[in-house]
Amino acid sequence: MNRFVWLALLALGLLAPFAVYPVFMMKLLCFALFAAAFNLLLGYTGLLSFGHAAFFGGAAYVTGHLVKNLGLTPELGVLAGTLFAGLLGYLVGSLAIRRQGIYFAMVTLALAQIVYFLALKLPFTGGEDGLQGIPRGLLFGVIDLNRHVTVGGTPLPLALYYFTFALFCLGFGIIYRAIHSPFGQVLKAIRENEPRARSLGYKVERFKLIAFVLSSALAGMAGAMKCLIFQLASLTDVSWHTSGEVVLMTLLGGVGTVLGPAAGAFTVVTLQSQLTMVGPWITVIIGGIFVVCVLVFRRGFVGELGRLLRRSL
């Protein structure tokens, strides 16, 4: 894609906290990374994981526990959460890739349910309440992430925002590199025609597993970020609702596009925050969008835009 587009997006990201409510913007970045990580599997490898909340939420719990109870600095907390999600992804992925297609989705959903049970029952998770009051701490032991900088009369949590933005760029960059590398080409080959990729000599299982681990680790990174921003790790983060939401974000934005998941995440998170007054009806609305999307809008925003512009976005 055009270099100017990237520079414009980067500038937008750097300036965003001065224009948009920063906590909202950070939430967007978390879910955009989560959806982009998920898309690496669904969009580029053709694997529908219906249990990605396990990695997102699992990492949130691990990071939260380590930072709150063991006093880890935030960057080490995020690193630990990410590694944990990657390891969990290795376990889940090794099992799930033994089945194909629809079964793969059901296996990931069921395995994620085990993680949900653990989050409910393990002694350090706080059960129904989750982990609350997680401190943000000092980045590298020096920079206070709670510090607000007053700009034009409003205090802005700039330290936390730029930490989040840097992590987002790191994660998104890794995904971008993976997609545009020879490794990414093999993933796409598997998505298009698995037997063919196999017959060309690629170890399909190994590629799927690497993609799965990468995707779950980055989903974990998003969860770890979320846990520091909201100072909370809760059962919602590991529930199947969250797994479904990330599917919707990706679908809505455009499966298998670079920018689609981020666009989808922006749309869904914005909807959720704008529609708080409808209460439980939000689930109905989300479900309705799902149905419409599947029936008439399978390419998603970015996919449709790409088709109009005749290029891959």
Partner: peptide
């Protein structure tokens, strides 16, 4: 999606 609608 339908399940979400009905449950919602």
């Amino acid at each position: 999606g339908l399940a979400l609608i009905i449950q919602g």
